[in-house]
Design a binder for these strands. Structure first.
Lengths: 229, 229
DNA sequence: GCATTCTTGTCATCGTTCTGTCATCATGGC
DNA sequence: GCCATGATGACAGAACGATGACAAGAATGC
C-alpha cells in the first residue's frame, strides 16, 4: 500500500523538524502542526493513519485533542502516541486512559519513537506494514486471502491464488514448469508438466481487467514469469 | 469468561508476586512462570490474551520466547509486553522489531505497566476491555453479551457468540477450521473439523437480517472470514 | 426431582466448484 | 513451410462446502 500518513502535533520547532525529517526518511507522509485546534481540523480533513501528539501544545491541550479525536467517529480508531516533557506518572496514566495507545517521556530517542510507531502500525494496519504484496497494479493480501487489480477485487481458485502468490513473491523471475510444480503443488506431486499451462491460462483469465495488459509473460522453452505492469 | 488471560514470565519472585497480585486485582486471570520454556508450553496449552515477558529469564531467553511465540500460528497474534532491566535502547528496538508490542525498562511502576497493558488490550481486543466492537453493521457487546445488527437484536447460541466475537476481533482475516477450533473451542478440544461448518451455518442463520448481505465469507480450501459489510 | 427446552457434535447427502488430462488449434523460430 | 512449443476448449472425476436431520447432553423452569 501507499505511505502511512502521520499527523505530528508538536510545538517545539526544533523537535518537530527533526521528527518530521526522520519519519519522512522512514517512508511516512508527515503532516505537522504546532497547534491543537489546527491538528483537529487537519485530522478531520484527511484522517491520518497515526497521530503523534505532544501533551503541552498551543491552543487546545494535548489530552483534550486526544479526547476529541476519540469522540469523533471518523478518528476514533486512529492510534495516538503521546509525548510529554513531564515525567509524571499520573499524566502517563491519564493519557493512556484517555485513549492514547502509547506514551513517551521526553527526552526520548527518535529511534525509539519510530520503533514504537512501527510496532503499533504493524499491529493495527497490517496493510501498512507491508503484509500486502504488490507487483505492478496487482495487490495480494495473504491474511485476508484477497487479490485486487487496479482496485477491482478478483476471484481466483485456490491453485491460481497460490500460483499468483508465488509469482508475486518473486516478481520478474522466470520459472520452468517443473519449478512451478514444486513450488505451488509441492515436490511430491506427480502431475503432468503440461497441466501448468492450463493453470497459467486460468490465472490469466482470473486477473483479466478491462484495459490492463497481461502481466504473465511466456518465455518460450523456458517457462513463465510475472511482470510488473 | 470475559476475564482477560495474562501470561506473566518473570523470574524475580518478588516482582512476579507483586504483579500477579496487582493484575488479579484489576480483574485479570494470571498465569505465572519464571521459566521461558515453561512459558512456551503454557502458551501452547491455553493461548493467553496477552503476555508480559521479562527479557532476562531462566531457560530460553526472553527474546527467543518472543520469537517462538510469533512463529507459532496459534500465538502469533498475541500481544507481548517486554520488560528489561537494561536501559539499552538497542534492546528496546530489537524487542519491538521481534514483534513485541510494548516495552518497559526496569524500574517501572506497576501502575504504568497496568495502564499500558490496558491500552494494548483496548486496541487489540476491545471486547476484553469491556468495550463494544463494531464490524460493518454488526455490533457486539461482550460484557452485556449482546449482539445487534442494523439495530436489531440477535440471539445467538453460546458457541456462535464466541465464534462471532473471535471473527469481529480479527475482521477480514481468513481462519482455517483448525484455527477456529483452537480459538473458539480451545486447543485441547478434539472435535471434528467439519463441525465448524455447521456452526458457521448456525452463525450465518443467527445474524441473518432482512435485506442485509451475508458477512461471512467462505474461502475455499482456506477457511472462513468475516467481512465488514 | 423431573420434564422441557436448548445446545452441540456428528453424519449422510446433495450441489457446486475445482482440477488434471486430452485433443486440437495457433504461433513463433528456422 | 515445417517443426516445436504454447494456447485453448471441453470434460469427467474428485474435492469441497452447504444443508437437514438426529440423538446425546446441558441448562432451565416448575
Amino acid at each position: 500500500m501507499s505511505q502511512p500518513r502521520l499527523l505530528l502535533v508538536e510545538d517545539d520547532p526544533a523537535l518537530a523538524e527533526l521528527l518530521e525529517f526522520r519519519f519522512q526518511a522512514e517512508g511516512y507522509a508527515v503532516t505537522s502542526t504546532p497547534d491543537g485546534d489546527e491538528a483537529l481540523l487537519l485530522a478531520a480533513e484527511e484522517v491520518p493513519d497515526l497521530v503523534v501528539l505532544d501533551w503541552m501544545i498551543e491552543g487546545t491541550s494535548g489530552i483534550e485533542v486526544c479526547r476529541r479525536l476519540r469522540r469523533d467517529k471518523a478518528t476514533a480508531h486512529v492510534p495516538i502516541v503521546m509525548l510529554t516533557a513531564r515525567g509524571a506518572e499520573d499524566d502517563m496514566i491519564r493519557g493512556l486512559e484517555t485513549g492514547a495507545d502509547d506514551y513517551l517521556t521526553k527526552p526520548f530517542s527518535p529511534r525509539e519513537l519510530i520503533a514504537r510507531v512501527g510496532a503499533i502500525l504493524r499491529r493495527i494496519r497490517p496493510a501498512l506494514a507491508g503484509e500486502v504484496i504488490a507487483v505492478g497494479d496487482l495487490q495480494l493480501d495473504a491474511t485476508a486471502h484477497k487479490v485486487t487489480r487496479r482496485g477491482k477485487i478478483l476471484s481466483l481458485g485456490p491453485t491460481e491464488f497460490r500460483l499468483l502468490k508465488f509469482f508475486m513473491e518473486h516478481p520478474g523471475r522466470v520459472f520452468s514448469r517443473g519449478q512451478l510444480l514444486d513450488a505451488v503443488w509441492g515436490t511430491a506431486s506427480e502431475i503432468e508438466l503440461r497441466t501448468v499451462d492450463v493453470h497459467i491460462r486460468r490465472l490469466r483469465k482470473g486477473i483479466e481487467v478491462e484495459g490492463a495488459p497481461d502481466p504473465v509473460r511466456t518465455v518460450r522453452s523456458a517457462g513463465y514469469a510475472l511482470e510488473a505492469v
